Amino acid sequence: MQRQEQKQVQQQQMTQDLVQRLPVLEADRLALIFRLARLARHNANIHLGSGGVEWIEDVASAFEEKLFTQIREGGGSEADKELRRKLVLLLDHRGLLPDTNEVLAERLQVDVAQIEQARQALLFLEPTGIGARTERECQYRHAIEHDDPRVVDVFDAIENGVSHQQMAIVLAVSEEELAGLERIVATLPKRPSLYEETSQIFPEVEVRYEDEKLVTTWLSPELDSTRVGNDREARWWMTSLAMRNETLREIWGVIESRQTEWLKGKLVLNPLTRRTVAHLIGKHESTVGRAIQGKFAKTENGIMEWRHFFVRSTSHGHSPFMIKRTLAELIQQETAPQSDQTLAHELARYGYQVTRRTVTNYREELGFGNSRERERQLWKG
């Protein structure tokens, strides 16, 4: 009996550990470096070995000081403020605090009530949503601070499963107004703004085609193994980053083998699904989905998001990407606009068996008008 209980506790700890590692897998390179730079300020054993981005490390060094200043200038006893500062140090790379009050209370050796009180105090700091338990709670904090108070009402109604029709009646708004409010709720930030957004992209991997072969260079962050030692926190991060990087390399290995033509500079993408990758690397499909989000690769065709390497196939096994590319070329090269049916016949000559209706859908997605509209444009010059 005792052995069974011990086994259950071990399984629970393993599950919690995996749950804690998932955000590391999901995080993009910039977010991870931001988090690691914060940790390095308090733990000399955590030091980036590779993959660093200097400016985000500088931003990270000032991030906590801004929060500490707000805590210092706020209300409460010195003991209350110290607990809030400790919670700030436990914020994850998203700026959230997903651990339960019970876990935090045990870790910091305080009462659960004290943790909840400190957590609530963090929610009033800037940036909005800092210290929220979940992304949904972060959205709620943004809803509270929205200029239109009805946004909170719509948020609460959606959370409570109130129908669209009932919301319109209760809030006394038109269908158009309600649709606008629902759009606002759907686009509320899921995470606090930890640093100013940048249009610059930081890829995880760079692939060049040199001397008839692909040369792959990994840019993912890693810790300096010579600095880790026996430090528990540093070793957890080193293991988590190693697991993350191993998973990314396994996924990329499949992408590279299936999309070799694209990586060599040709505009060709072959059908590939997450399920296929999951089967080949022996992981769950959801793990593949989590891993590829927000990840980029620098290729001969420019920087590309990993998810764009995944393209479904048609019933004949062709990638819609390739069909659309060929369709666009046919339309751009035509001297006299052709009907969708004629374009379908032309595509068949290239081995793409599609219906006229499919051609119409693809043509509209590409932004081309029908044959009459294209003829008028041609006539106008």
Score class of each variant (00 low, 15 high):
residue 348 A to L: 15
residue 205 V to K: 00
residue 112 V to G: 01
residue 361 N to I: 13
residue 234 A to H: 02
residue 206 E to Y: 02
residue 209 Y to H: 15
residue 66 K to W: 05
residue 312 R to W: 08
residue 275 R to L: 11
residue 213 K to C: 12
residue 245 N to Y: 06
residue 262 W to Y: 15
residue 100 T to Q: 09
residue 24 V to K: 02
residue 66 K to D: 13
residue 96 L to K: 00
residue 264 K to N: 10
residue 262 W to K: 02
residue 203 P to G: 08
residue 128 T to W: 00
residue 243 M to T: 06
residue 295 K to R: 15
residue 341 Q to W: 08
residue 350 Y to Q: 04
residue 163 S to F: 05
residue 124 F to E: 15
residue 237 W to V: 00
residue 266 K to N: 12
residue 137 E to P: 03
residue 259 Q to F: 10
residue 147 D to G: 12
residue 5 E to K: 11
residue 251 I to D: 00
residue 271 P to I: 05
residue 181 L to Q: 01
residue 193 S to I: 12
residue 118 A to E: 00
residue 345 H to I: 05
residue 139 Q to M: 14
residue 375 E to C: 05
residue 332 Q to M: 09
residue 292 I to C: 09
residue 184 I to H: 04
residue 307 R to W: 09
residue 252 W to F: 15
residue 152 V to C: 11
residue 63 F to D: 02
residue 360 T to A: 15
residue 281 I to D: 02
residue 218 W to R: 06
residue 313 S to T: 05
residue 305 E to Y: 10
residue 178 L to Y: 04
residue 274 R to V: 07
residue 157 A to R: 03
residue 306 W to V: 06
residue 21 R to L: 03
residue 204 E to P: 00
residue 78 E to W: 11
residue 375 E to F: 13
residue 108 L to M: 07
residue 150 R to T: 08
residue 7 K to R: 15
residue 95 G to Q: 01
residue 259 Q to H: 09
residue 103 V to T: 14
residue 187 T to K: 09
residue 64 E to D: 15
residue 247 T to L: 14
residue 203 P to N: 10
residue 118 A to C: 10
residue 279 H to F: 10
residue 251 I to A: 01
residue 276 T to H: 08
residue 105 A to L: 14
residue 269 L to F: 12
residue 116 E to Y: 14
residue 41 R to N: 13
residue 177 E to Y: 11
residue 234 A to S: 09
residue 171 L to S: 04
residue 68 F to H: 06
residue 351 G to P: 03
residue 171 L to Q: 08
residue 319 S to P: 02
residue 34 F to L: 05
residue 216 T to P: 00
residue 12 Q to G: 11
residue 374 R to T: 05
residue 29 R to T: 04
residue 112 V to F: 09
residue 141 R to F: 13
residue 223 L to P: 00
residue 237 W to C: 00
residue 327 L to M: 06
residue 156 D to S: 13
residue 26 E to Y: 07
residue 85 R to N: 09
residue 268 V to E: 03
residue 28 D to E: 09
residue 7 K to H: 12
residue 78 E to Y: 12
residue 90 L to M: 06
residue 107 R to Y: 15
residue 99 D to S: 06
residue 43 N to V: 13
residue 93 H to Y: 08
residue 334 E to D: 09
residue 211 D to C: 06
residue 293 Q to L: 10
residue 145 E to F: 04
residue 76 G to C: 08
